[in-house]
Amino acid sequence: VSKLITEALSVSQERVGMSLVALKKALAAAGYDVEKNNSRIKLSLKSLVNKGILVQTRGTGASGSFKLS
C-alpha cells in the first residue's frame, strides 16, 4: 500500500499535495480495493509521515493533504 501511495503522490501535480479523498480515488483507479482496505491506507499514511517520507500539509491524523518530502 505504501508503494502505491508514494507512486500516486509522485504523479500528482498539486503544489499543496493530494487530499485523502483524491488519494483514494487515485488508488481506486489503479485497481486497489479502497473500501475493503481503508484502515490499511490510513495506517500506511501515518507510518509514511512518521518515517519522514510524506509531509502532511493540512489536517490531522490520516485526514487532510499529503505530499512527498
Rank of each mutant, 00 (worst) to 15 (best):
G59K: 13
K42I: 14
D33R: 13
T6S: 07
Q13T: 08
I41H: 03
I41C: 03
K25E: 10
N50L: 04
T60F: 06
N50C: 04
A22Y: 12
M18K: 15
R15N: 14
V55L: 11
L20S: 02
S47A: 11
G59I: 15
L48G: 00
V1T: 04
S19K: 12
V34R: 05
L68F: 09
V55I: 10
V16D: 15
T60S: 13
S10Y: 05
K51R: 15
A8M: 07
S69Y: 15
L23E: 02
V34M: 09
S12C: 13
E7H: 08
V11I: 07
G64R: 12
L43K: 15
I5N: 01
N37W: 10
K42E: 15
K42Y: 08
Y32L: 13
G61P: 08
L23M: 06
T60W: 09
L68G: 11
R15F: 05
L68H: 04
N37R: 14
G17L: 02
L45A: 01
T6G: 01
G59R: 08
S10T: 13
K46N: 02
S12N: 06
S2I: 06
G61H: 12
T6F: 02
G52T: 08
L20D: 04
S65F: 08
L20E: 11
K25H: 04
S69L: 08
G64H: 06
L43Q: 15
S12G: 13
S65R: 05
K3D: 08
G64D: 12
N37E: 13
I41R: 02
I53R: 09
A26V: 11
R58K: 15
I41F: 11
A26L: 08
I53P: 06
A26Y: 10
T60E: 12
K3Y: 01
A22T: 05
V11A: 13
N37M: 02
N38Q: 11
M18V: 04
A8R: 04
S69Q: 09
R40N: 07
R40Q: 13
T57Y: 08
V21E: 14
A62H: 11
E7D: 09
N50H: 06
L27Y: 01
S2V: 01
Q13I: 05
L45C: 03
V49M: 14
A28W: 04
A29Q: 10
V11R: 12
S39G: 10
R40G: 04
S65N: 13
S19D: 14
V55P: 07
T57P: 11
T60N: 12
S69H: 02
T6Y: 05
S12Q: 12
I5Y: 00
F66Q: 10
V34N: 06
S47K: 07
E7L: 00
K3R: 05
L27D: 01
E14V: 01
A8E: 01
A29D: 10
L54W: 10
L27M: 07
A26R: 03
S39D: 12
L23H: 00
K25W: 01
S39Y: 02
T6V: 08
S69D: 07
S2M: 04
E35H: 08
T57C: 12
L48W: 03
S12T: 04
K36I: 01
L45W: 09
Q56L: 07
V21W: 07
A28L: 10
T60D: 15
S19A: 06
K51L: 05
V55S: 14
G61A: 09
K25S: 06
G31H: 04
V11E: 09
V21I: 11
G17T: 08
I53W: 11
S63W: 11
G31P: 03
R40V: 03
T57A: 13
S39P: 03
R40W: 06
V1F: 11
S47M: 11
S12A: 12
Y32H: 11
K67I: 07
R58W: 08
L23R: 00
F66N: 09
L54M: 14
S39N: 14
L48K: 00
A29L: 05
E7Y: 01
E14C: 00
R15I: 04
K46E: 11
K42L: 14
S39R: 04
K24R: 07
E7N: 09
A28V: 09
L9S: 01
K67E: 12
S2Y: 07
K24D: 00
L9C: 03
A30D: 04
N37D: 03
V16N: 14
A28G: 09
E14T: 03
N37L: 11
L27I: 09
A30E: 03
L54T: 06
K36C: 02
Q56K: 14
V55M: 13
R58H: 11
K46C: 01
R15D: 15
S12E: 03
T57S: 12
T6W: 01
T6I: 10
Q56R: 12
A29K: 15
S12L: 13
Q13E: 11
A30M: 13
V49P: 03
L45M: 03
V1D: 05
S10N: 12
E35I: 09
S44N: 08
M18S: 13
G17K: 15
L43A: 15
M18D: 04
S63R: 08
K36N: 12
G61M: 06
K42W: 03
L48N: 01
E7G: 00
A30T: 11
K67L: 07
F66I: 05
L9N: 00
G31Y: 11
G59W: 08
R15W: 01
S2E: 15
Y32I: 13
K25Q: 10
A8D: 00
S69K: 12
R58P: 12
K24N: 04
A22V: 04
